[in-house]
Structure formats: structure tokens, C-alpha cells
Design a protein around this nucleic acid. Structure first.
Lengths: 143, 143
DNA sequence: CTTGACTCTGTAGTATGGTACAGGGTGTAG
DNA sequence: CTACACCCTGTACCATACTACAGAGTCAAG
């Protein structure tokens, strides 16, 4: 009926697919970022495809300045099997706001760098490049 | 002529203005992220206004997932007093590409969360929310 | 039925980015 | 001239996020 039992997704395979170390996966499990997977009789972890996606998500979110604790919050938004919907919505809106702030900050940085490139190309010496100036504008309270 | 000598910007004032700890400033100095400031006769550090901007920039870039080493590279783009313009341009383009990747990843995350919110509001149970799916699409190789 | 690649648990070590003293000098207000 | 807030150097410690063993069991191929 199904050909799934043929190749169980062991920790090593997941690690290769998600491009992280095996130890990292076990670490995320200990930290509660990924659920304890079912085990074979001999104690081997067996994962589903979704685990790879989840680990890749963690990796990506980390590169965007989210801490593992924050990533845990992000993941918990979907982990709940319905219920407490209003709470989830509030959290989601919070996270969206955080993301918007990050995007704005990055766009501001991008504009500065682009300006630097243009200035550099055109005139020769750029004593007062705008890279810092643009970003000086009042804290955006990104934790 | 000038009223600047009245209130020299000491490390404590810079820390308050940039909203970081005093120790953090000295740490950044040791790491070469901010230049060694001139000293008073008694050895007190005296900063210019630009130092505050620089520290705030570091803080912001850190929240966006850049390491101190990467921030150093970003800052070095403007630190150079002209010369090696082509090199600076190449680096700047590199950094712009990195920033674009981060922005895209964040926008993808934002879309997923927004989708979650909408789904949550409309129908009741969202067993297969798209938060992970959207982000699963092939690595963007953000280090 | 052995060999080699894989897995397990548990503990210890590392890199990054700070943070917190200790022990001492500075500076100015009362 | 002393009190108190501030600064100095140096070292030690901390949290986060891994990373690397050690010592032992598992499993598929030859």
C-alpha cells in the first residue's frame, strides 16, 4: 500500500537535507524547538518530511536575527491544534510588527549602501557618505 | 568661538545616548568596531556625535542577524577615506545582495504569518497552516 | 558473523557577544 | 577638603547556540 516504511528518515538524513549538524537537531529537540520524534524499537529517531522544513525554518529565522526563544514563539503559532485563536492572532500580529521593523531597517540600510555605491561611482571622494546618517533616525526598538 | 569644549561627550553619555552599556562600548572598541577615541590628559575617552550613530548602527545591524564581523565589514565601507573605490563597490554590492535576501526571507515569513491570521479569523481549525511551507522553498544560503 | 557506517546518551568544550567586578584615579559641588 | 559620581585597566564570569567527544548499541553488506 505504501512505500514509506522502506526508508525511514533518520537523524543523519534529516541533518543532510536541512544542512545542519546531527548534534544541532538533538540540541533543538532538547530545547523544545522540534518535537520528540517517534523512535524505532532500538531507539533510533524517525522523522517526517515536515521536520526538515521546520529545521530549515529555524535556520533561516536565526539568520534574520531571531533568537531560538523567539523562533519557538513563532513556531508555537502553528503548533497549537486550533483553540485559543485570539491569542494566536495577537502573537502573530506582534511578530508581523517585528518583521516589518526588520524589513524597514534593512531597506534603510540598503538605501544607504546603494547611495554609497552611486556616490562612489560618480564623484571621486565621498567624505560624508550617508551610510550612518540614514540609520541614525531614532531607535526602532528592535530587541 | 565654539561652545563645544564645555561638555565633552564621555563614555557614559555616549552609552546613554546610544542606549547600550558602557562596557559594550569598550568592548566594541577592543573589537575594532569603533575607533579608539581621543583621550583627555587624565585618560578619559572623548567622543564625537558620530560615535553615537555608529553604535546605534551596530545595535540595529545586530538585530538584523549580522555578526559583529559582518558589521565591521559594513562599517569599513565608509571608513576608508576614498581610494580602492572598485573594491568598496564590490563589497557594497555583496552586502546589498545579502540584505535583499534577508528582506525576501522576512517578506516570505510575513506572508506566512499574515496567511495564518486570515485563516484563523475565517475558518475555525487550520490543520495545515502555511507558515512552514512558504519558507521551505530551497535555501537562500543566508549564512 | 565481522566490519563499518550509523545511532544512542551524557558530558564537556567552544565561539560570540557581552556583563560584572576589583582596585584604583578624576573632577566638581558643597 | 571630602564626598560622590564618574572614569580607568584588567580579569573573570555569563548566556546563547552550538560542537565535539566518550563509550556503547544497531544494522546492512559482504
Amino acid at each position: 500500500m505504501n512505500a514509506k516504511t522502506a526508508a525511514p528518515l533518520t537523524i543523519g538524513k534529516v541533518a543532510r537535507l536541512a544542512e545542519v549538524g546531527i548534534e544541532t537537531i538533538r540540541f533543538y529537540e532538547r530545547e523544545g524547538l522540534i518535537p520528540d520524534p517517534p523512535r524505532s524499537e532500538s531507539g533510533y529517531r524517525h522523522y517526517g518530511e515536515d521536520s526538515v522544513a521546520r529545521i530549515r525554518f529555524i535556520k533561516k529565522a536565526k539568520a534574520l536575527g531571531f533568537s531560538l526563544a523567539e523562533i519557538g514563539e513563532l513556531l508555537s503559532l502553528r503548533a497549537k491544534p486550533s483553540g485559543s485563536c485570539a491569542n494566536v492572532q495577537a502573537k502573530a500580529h506582534e511578530k508581523i510588527a517585528e518583521i516589518d521593523q526588520k524589513i524597514e531597517a534593512l531597506q534603510s540600510m540598503r538605501t544607504s549602501l546603494q547611495g554609497l555605491v552611486v556616490e562612489c561611482r560618480g564623484t571621486g571622494p565621498r567624505s560624508e557618505c550617508p551610510i550612518l546618517n540614514t540609520l541614525d533616525a531614532k531607535e526602532t526598538s528592535c530587541t
